[in-house]
Computed example of a mutant assay.
Amino acid sequence: MKEFILELLFTIQGIGAASGLIYREQDIYLISDNSNYLYSYSLETKTLKEKLLSERAVNVQVPKKIKADFEAITEIDSCLYIFGSGSTANRNLLVIYDFRLDRVDSIDMGPVYQALRENYAISADDFNIEGAIDLNSDIWLFNRGNGPGQKNGVFVLQRNNLAPKAYYPVTLPSLKGIPLGFTDATVVDNKIYFIAAAEDGSSTYLDGDVQGTVLGVLLPETLQIEYTQPISFSHKFEGLTHYISDSSSITFLLCEDQDGDADFSDIYRLVLPR
């Protein structure tokens, strides 16, 4: 087990249930699983801005039954790709935000998600997209195995047309006797760093009692896990992004989903030695 430093860096007021984040040019871009906004927080000015992603519901706190459930975010060619989880029929939206044009476009991922379920024999109860990365001209979507079948795995889409390309099941360990499920991933030096959380439950819709989060490394060439290690026994971290690196360490930023109605999000710094 590697020694690491995990510390609360700051708290952002005005956004709750943070489910993913991207660090880009001194700004942190965040999504929330109960909001239809993209949030940008400036590390220089300490200010928060909002960008509406979906007209389906413009209020900040969207009711659970109708929320888009944005859970996965990644950057591709100066655009943010923001994916709904697909865990219910109304959570199939992909929103693409173009930094250069300051424009939002959306795609219904329902047919793609349906094809993934059918092609790779994943039931609707086990389908729950929680992380996304851009790797080797493909988009990798991380399925969280918190359904009854515990289907942790990676779906691979062709980047140019979002067509299904492959699926790789991934076996994760347990934490305190509770199965782990992917919650996010990022790429550093051609290694996939991921986080996975343990919740005492077997539903992609209902929240369970949080038992903690682990950090792990997945090797993209072999789809083998290099290692995993607990980073918390009380927090459910749902977002992971690369922050800075040097010859001795890699630093990530993480966001926590507290599964409540809180109107703030804690941002943590995780320093991992090389």
Score class of each variant (00 low, 15 high):
115 A>M: 08
124 A>L: 10
140 W>L: 15
127 F>G: 03
152 N>E: 08
137 S>P: 06
136 N>D: 14
134 D>F: 14
119 N>Y: 09
141 L>G: 07
148 P>H: 05
143 N>M: 11
137 S>T: 04
129 I>H: 03
115 A>H: 06
135 L>T: 04
130 E>H: 05
153 G>V: 06
156 V>R: 04
134 D>A: 13
132 A>G: 03
122 I>P: 11
152 N>D: 12
135 L>C: 04
125 D>G: 13
142 F>A: 04
155 F>E: 01
116 L>R: 01
124 A>V: 11
128 N>T: 15
125 D>M: 11
133 I>P: 07
115 A>S: 12
136 N>H: 12
127 F>Y: 06
155 F>N: 04
126 D>H: 09
121 A>S: 15
127 F>E: 02
145 G>Q: 12
148 P>G: 06
131 G>N: 11
121 A>G: 14
125 D>S: 14
134 D>S: 12
155 F>P: 01
118 E>Y: 00
128 N>D: 15
117 R>P: 00
123 S>M: 01
138 D>H: 13
115 A>I: 00
156 V>S: 02
151 K>G: 03
120 Y>M: 08
129 I>W: 08
133 I>W: 07
149 G>M: 07
140 W>I: 01
134 D>T: 01
118 E>N: 00
122 I>H: 09
120 Y>N: 07
125 D>N: 14
152 N>R: 11
144 R>N: 13
132 A>M: 05
120 Y>H: 06
116 L>T: 01
151 K>H: 12
137 S>I: 05
